[in-house]
Simulated scan of single mutants.
Amino acid sequence: MEKIMILSEIQEVVRECGQLMLRADHAHAGVENKGKYNDLVTRYDKAIQDILQKRLLDIAPDAHFLGEEENVHESIAKGRAFVVDPIDGTTNFVKDYKCSVISVAMTMDGEVTLGVIYNPYLDEMYTAQKGKGASCNGIPIHVSDHVLHEGIVLYGSASYYRELIDESFRLLRLCADEAMDIRRSGSAAWDLCTIAAGRAEMFFELRLQPWDFAAGSLLVTEAGGTVTCVDGSPIAIGKPCSILAKGTQVDDAFMRK
């Protein structure tokens, strides 16, 4: 019962933050870079994280907090914690591309137990509770059961990590030979929602931070899919890693050639 109440309260605050994104004044977003020309942050990222930090810790005062912005990077190894990306897809947000989401995961001793991702542009609220399945706007969702020849591959190009770009595109070329087509949204959290909803068959990126994939990884697994590192090893919620998420009938052996 407590988790259901917490899940409902998380959705409420996330939906409110989504309204802030929709009302954003993009001409005065206060865009800055975080040490790399393509790693952007806006005043909206910071404002939404501040709201989430305050409101989520009101919901669970004992929790730790790991957020993308402002170096709010507490350990999530022990006890309860929130892992938050206030705007996943900040470059999209800056460009008013309308493909950005808010992502919140709750963990216990480093394991994700609740996940919420909200796309305010589509008004789609994705939720998952460990062992209870995943849903979009309250309707249960399931990953695709198509083989890759009948499916779409989503990818992230690890654009912040220039040393990984060649390998990213080498793998993408392999995917192009296996799948019907490929897509890049610019938001890993949204890509994981897309896999969980069965709208695409596979997603990969060679390095993501915990706030990028924590909530989405639970969505995919609770929707019947699989999430691992690209080499097939288990993901680590508390540190950066590669991500490969897929539906039930995808053979990803070609990714490890």
Rank of each mutant, 00 (worst) to 15 (best):
M21K: 12
D85M: 08
V84R: 03
L57E: 03
D181G: 12
G138Q: 05
F169M: 02
I235Q: 02
L66V: 05
L174E: 12
I243T: 00
D123E: 14
D96G: 08
F65Q: 07
E163V: 01
T90V: 08
E9S: 08
D88Y: 07
I87E: 01
V31Q: 11
D177T: 12
V83S: 05
D181A: 14
G156P: 09
M180N: 11
F213Y: 06
T228M: 01
M5V: 13
G198H: 04
R43H: 15
R43N: 15
T113W: 08
R23Q: 15
E70Y: 08
G238Y: 03
L66A: 08
R15A: 14
K36E: 15
D181K: 11
Q11C: 15
N33F: 11
G110C: 02
V94L: 06
Y121L: 07
R199D: 14
K239F: 07
S157K: 13
P140M: 09
K98R: 15
M125V: 10
I4T: 14
I141D: 04
D50M: 09
L164G: 02
V143A: 03
L52G: 03
D212P: 04
G151Q: 06
L122V: 10
Y160N: 14
R55I: 00
R15N: 10
F204P: 02
E69N: 06
V116W: 00
R23H: 15
G133T: 06
M106C: 08
D62F: 11
D109N: 12
L208K: 07
S187V: 09
G131K: 07
A24Q: 10
A63H: 04
V147H: 12
D231H: 09
F203A: 04
D145E: 14
D191N: 15
L22H: 11
G138R: 06
T91P: 05
D181R: 13
A179P: 06
W190A: 14
I10Y: 00
Q53V: 01
L174W: 13
A27C: 12
K132P: 01
D166V: 13
V101K: 11
I51M: 07
A77M: 03
I48Q: 04
I117Y: 06
S242G: 02
K246P: 01
E222L: 04
N71M: 12
V94I: 07
S168G: 06
I235N: 01
Y126F: 14
I59N: 00
